[in-house]
Amino acid sequence: MAAAAAAGAGPEMVRGQVFDVGPRYTNLSYIGEGAYGMVCSAYDNVNKVRVAIKKISPFEHQTYCQRTLREIKILLRFRHENIIGINDIIRAPTIEQMKDVYIVQDLMETDLYKLLKTQHLSNDHICYFLYQILRGLKYIHSANVLHRDLKPSNLLLNTTCDLKICDFGLARVADPDHDHTGFLTEYVATRWYRAPEIMLNSKGYTKSIDIWSVGCILAEMLSNRPIFPGKHYLDQLNHILGILGSPSQEDLNCIINLKARNYLLSLPHKNKVPWNRLFPNADSKALDLLDKMLTFNPHKRIEVEQALAHPYLEQYYDPSDEPIAEAPFKFDMELDDLPKEKLKELIFEETARFQPGYRS
């Protein structure tokens, strides 16, 4: 834990890192770190609560700039109880001085990944967590956004079992017609939660990839272990087919990539493993919904509104309290091709509203 900075004593240090967030945020305490930044909790002297502050230093890398800009653009436009918001952003007053960006968010005690390492969940908890994931996802999908990296560590939890989806750095506007060349190379989302079509096709992607990830998360809540822990690309596919069985001819016809289709045709026939054999203690309604989410063919996979209306979630289902976005989200430009200098300018502009004396 960093010592509390005395008023006016300059930035606090946390594990050798400068955290320049005073005077409003003090009493910093280390939480963890990701690929390009550290997260601390801090005391907000204005709202009198502890908050989470993520320090991001992305400006050396085009990919990190892209992810940072995506996350900020999306989260500043989203407003939903099951999606983490941005409360404040701290950065230098000029673009030349801006080396880091500090993002202030609600402090959540833990995440689903940490929880599943230590606790076996009751059916009631599984049901409530799944409902909140789908409630947040309904809003995301209504904005025409794909999260693309749903996994237990991106689901934040607090002691009252509130759940918030975080990390929109890989999110995209849904565009089933656009052929994202190089899709697989830039697709760094965790393999275990990846839909089979991501490994088999490169053309376009749809909201059904997020539903697949939610199915993987439900299976993990039922058993405290990942359902498809593939060691590499082909191993991942083999794990999936080992449980779902061989795809039907109709399902194979959806695979545009001939090499991928021929690979699947070359494999020995596998039978589907019954879900109640894998999860003998699970609620039968939970397994019915799991089956509809972990469907090989993305066109037959359940959609988020149908999933919310499934009998497993009937005690929570309330369409009048499951809000959607006001308007579909649009990125003005494809960020993939922009140089990091341009992305830095866009991050600077996007964060201006939090600067003292800002006038829109």
Rank of each mutant, 00 (worst) to 15 (best):
L134T: 05
A4Q: 05
L287E: 08
H299W: 06
H239Q: 15
W192F: 09
G204H: 07
D318W: 01
L28Q: 14
L313S: 07
R353L: 13
A195P: 10
A189F: 04
L112Y: 02
S248A: 09
P311G: 01
D175P: 02
V51L: 11
I86L: 08
T118H: 03
Y30Q: 06
D318T: 02
T63V: 09
D321H: 04
L222K: 01
D318N: 14
K138R: 11
M108T: 07
D111S: 01
A309W: 03
L335V: 03
E303P: 00
D111N: 11
H180N: 15
N257A: 10
V273A: 07
L244P: 08
S320D: 05
S360G: 11
F59I: 15
R301P: 04
A9F: 00
I240E: 02
E334L: 08
S360E: 14
N271Y: 13
Q17G: 03
D162A: 08
Y113A: 05
L146K: 06
T118A: 08
P226R: 05
E305S: 03
K300P: 02
Y30D: 07
M221T: 06
K231S: 00
T68W: 10
A352G: 03
L278N: 06
L76V: 00
V214Q: 09
G22N: 12
I243W: 05
M13A: 10
G16R: 14
G32V: 13
R353D: 03
A9M: 02
E341H: 11
E33W: 01
Q355P: 04
R353K: 13
I72D: 02
L76Y: 01
G16E: 12
W212S: 07
I56A: 14
I209T: 00
V304G: 15
S57V: 13
E109A: 04
I227N: 13
L170C: 03
Q119E: 12
A195Q: 08
P152G: 00
S266T: 01
F329G: 00
F19K: 03
G182A: 09
N257G: 12
V173M: 11
C161G: 00
T160F: 08
A195T: 04
Y139H: 00
T68M: 15
H232E: 04
H141Y: 08
K203W: 11
A4D: 11
W275C: 15
G10D: 12
L265D: 10
I90N: 14
V273Y: 09
G37S: 15
E334D: 15
A189P: 09
D337F: 06
R359G: 13
L200I: 08
L157K: 04
S213P: 04
L267D: 00
A286R: 00
A171R: 09
A2M: 14
L163D: 01
T160M: 03
D111H: 02
K99S: 05
Y316D: 09
A3I: 00
V21R: 03
L343A: 12
I133W: 03
T118C: 07
L343M: 12
F183D: 06
E349M: 06
R148E: 07
G242M: 11
C166G: 13
Y30F: 14
D336Q: 10
L112D: 04
F348D: 07
E345S: 11
G85I: 07
L222A: 07
F129T: 02
E303A: 09
V104H: 06
T26F: 13
G10V: 15
T110G: 05
R261F: 00
I302Q: 01
K207D: 06
S142L: 11
V21E: 15
L237H: 06
T118F: 12
T295V: 03
I83M: 00
P268L: 09
S57I: 13
I31E: 15
L244F: 05
I240F: 15
G32M: 00
N253V: 07
T94S: 15
M13P: 15
F19V: 14
H120Q: 14
K138N: 15
R261C: 08
G204I: 05
R24L: 13
N224Y: 15
L76N: 09
V273F: 02
H232W: 01
T68H: 15
T190L: 07
H310G: 01
G16I: 00
S202I: 13
K344M: 15
E305M: 02
D291F: 06
N271R: 08
P226L: 07
C216Q: 05
I86S: 12
L116A: 02
R67Q: 11
G16Q: 11
H310I: 05
F296W: 02
D318L: 01
I217P: 03
